[in-house]
Each structure stands twice: as C-alpha cells, then as structure tokens.
Design a protein around this nucleic acid. Structure first.
Lengths: 218, 218
DNA sequence: ATTATCTTTTAGGTATACCAAAATTAATAA
DNA sequence: TTATTAATTTTGGTATACCTAAAAGATAAT
C-alpha cells in the first residue's frame, strides 16, 4: 500500500474517531476519502494486515496504537504547515488547509520540528485545533462548543470545527478570530440563536454556526 | 498518467538535455529515473500522446514547448525550495536536494512566488544553477566549476558546493571568499591540480576541491 | 558486408487503487 | 417475527506504473 494512501486513511479515521473515540464505519470513511464503500472495505483489510487498524467486518474500525501514532504524526505535520503558512508566509485562514493537505505527506522530522521551533512550538493551529508535539502528545483543553455556552458567560474564541472557506470568511467578517473575546448576551429559546458581543459589536450566530465554534471559558 | 510521474519524466529529460540541447536516449532516462528501459519506452509513448515530448522510436526524445514549460516550472519549484531550505530554514546543502525532491511536486504558484519573494527573487541558487522566474525565463549564467576553468583565464569566485567546516576553513585560509578574483596560472596535466593567483598569492587547488568551487568568467 | 554487441521495443505479467453491480449481512419497522 | 430498508462485502473488471525475458533494431568491429 502506498504511503500516501495509508496516511490518508489513518488521518481520516483519526479525525472521525477522535471526538467521541467511537468506532468508525465504512460509509463515513467513503464520504471523507471520496471513494466508494467497496474500496474502503478493501483498504481497511490491507490496513488491518499492516496492523494499523483493528477491522472487524460489518462492524467498524479503530486505530491500533501503531496506527494512532502514525495518524498523530500526520496531524502534526498538517497543523504545523497550516500554522507556518498562515503566520510566516501570509496565507489566509481559508487557504492553508488545501496546501497543507499536500505538504503533510512530506516526511522529514527535522523539517517539521524546525518549522515548529520557528513558530515557538505552538500547541494550537490557526483553527484552534491542538498540534501534537514531536512525541505525539496533545495538549488537553477544556474547550466547549459555542452552542454549549451560557448566557452572560465570557469566553475566548479558540477554534472552529468547520473549515470551509465560506464559514471562515463569515467569521473573519465579524472579527471572530482566534483569541477574540466573546460575551454571551442572550440565547433565543425557540431556535437557539446566540447573540453575543465581540469587539463591542453585537453579532447574531445561528445554532448551526455555534456548533462549529470552539470557545474557552475565561 | 499521474501528475507526479509526468513531472519526474519531464524534469529528468530537461536536466539531461539542457546542457547540450541534444536528444535524450532511453537508457539515460532509465538510469536517472531508476526504472527499466522497457518502462521508459512505455512512459515516453504516453508523454508523446500528452504532447509533452516528441518521441520517435529507437531514436530519442525531446521536450515540446508545453513539456519544456512544465519542466521549467518544476525546476523552479525545486530550486526555490532548495534555496529556502538552506537560507531560511538552516539546512545544509547536502540535505536540501532530497527534501526538495518531494516539495517540488506541490503545485501552488502563490506559495512558490511567496518563497521566492522572501528570498529576494534570486536568479541563481548557491550551486550556481539558474532559477527560472515565474514565467519560466532563465537568466543565462557563465558560472562554471573551477575544474572547468581554462589556463590564463580570469574568474570571480561565486560559490561552493561543499559546505563542510574543513573545506570552508581551507578556503578562508587562502582568502578564497565570495567575489575573490582568480587568475589561473596553470593546470597540472597528470592530476588536474590547479595553480592560481588569488590576492597576489599563489594557491594550489586539488582537482577534488576544484569540483566544489563555482566561478564566473570575468 | 557480416558478425557481434549494445539498445530499444514488444509481449506477457504483477501489484496497487480504484470502480459498479450483485450478494450478503445488519438494522429497522410493521 | 418477518418484511423492508440500509450498509457492507464480494465479484469481476479497469487503468496505472512498473517488471522480466525475448525479439527486433541500431552500432561498431573485423
């Protein structure tokens, strides 16, 4: 199996299972990888042989420790590149993901560690996602979704879970950037729309958008 | 045909034909690409179909203008990355080629142009190899290796291809620094040792060292 | 010019990574 | 519980990028 193929599978399995650490099913993978379910079955069988995943047919998949280790290193490369592109090379939030998608496959630890050092070994990328360190350790946070925030609470914007260009542009327009201070003014009861103050301006956020915004209690 | 495969063929054909602009034969390609001659035949047939090369069987290959254009853009990416890795990220010249070999396939003009701008849009990499500009234009250089210099020629030292501390100290000792003026006094026939005048002092350079010194015809 | 040698091509074959359609298995609803 | 629906796997097939071994073509040497 080609290294790039292995990496794309493992990264995707990691991303799908990291939130709730559940088993990943084929259809999710087929969607994310943009290949047919039949191909996913075939791929998982090979990854099982390579001992990167435990795959039981018609049930689901999870990473082995070897698979998780590899996945973490790809996630690290991806997020370090995203951060470097944004902070050192002047790319916008909405542009970095696509380029990092290619750069993440360049396997050279010295390069990634060098970029990380230049950035001051950041623990979070421009989207607020944690960057595993060189050993694969991830900084645990007490981040919550904006949709779980409480009225009159004061929060700091830490990241997003939707990386579409449209969404990122929408956030930028309202100055909802990483580190922005947010005061929850109110939550509409009937549709869970959130009204908040950011940079002294009132912004209304739909329930759907609030699901995609990660904040930290201040 | 996969984009990376196309790029590797075209880059190699370019590198083999750029010096004397002759037609490239299969065996050279097979060697450089580290694949069998049979595979080269197959590959060239496809590249011919794609109109990147003119390929006449049992004769040889040359790039079409479309092929040369693509080749030039890969050479640009490769040399910009090499320069960036060395100058901005602190890699040694012995390390950069291998990494650039992977990075050169990342296709994003904005990225390469950004790196180029940071470096001051260099026209040559420190090997003395020209870097094509964004339009594929190459600045013709009269850089040569000292080992190719002629007796009684007058040259200017432009760079080195060996960056070991020992070598650099050796050069410094003889005041062989960038920009130094060099007059070739003689070349020993039996071992190609070069005797030159630098700063009014006579210096003897071994053939091996002369391979690593880049000079410009004055 | 004819053999010997070297190069290139053809023929036949492998492994990877994908696919659609059919068959199977699991989940859900009646 | 059985029928219906949905997910998964199997089957058979494609294209790419390689390979080896044998055949054909070009080059050089006598």
């Amino acid at each position: 199996m080609r290294q790039e193929t292995v990496e794309n599978y493992l990264k995707t399995i990691y991303n799908l299972s990291s939130n709730n650490s559940t088993v990943v099913v084929n259809q999710q993978l087929a969607n994310k990888l943009e290949i047919s379910p039949a191909s996913v079955t075939e791929g998982l069988r090979k990854l099982h042989e390579l001992k990167y995943v435990v795959y039981e047919k018609s049930y689901g998949t999870r990473l082995t420790s070897a698979g998780a280790k590899l996945a973490l290193s790809i996630v690290r490369r991806h997020r370090i590149w995203e951060t470097y592109l944004a902070k050192e090379l002047g790319f916008g939030w909405d542009e970095v993901h696509e380029i990092a998608e290619e750069l993440e496959h360049i396997k050279n630890d010295k390069l990634i560690n060098k970029l990380s050092a230049i950035l001051g070994n950041p623990m979070f990328d421009p989207h607020g996602d944690p960057i595993p360190d060189a050993k694969g350790k991830i900084k645990k946070s007490n981040f919550i979704k904006l949709s779980e925030a409480k009225v009159k609470g004061n929060y700091s914007l830490m990241g997003v879970t939707d990386h579409s260009a449209a969404f990122l542009k929408y956030l930028e327009k309202h100055q909802l950037i990483i580190g922005a201070n947010i005061d929850i003014k109110g939550i509409e009861e009937f549709d869970n729309t959130i009204v908040l103050i950011c940079n002294k301006k009132e912004v209304t956020i739909s329930a759907k958008a609030a699901e995609c915004i990660i904040v930290e209690t201040v």
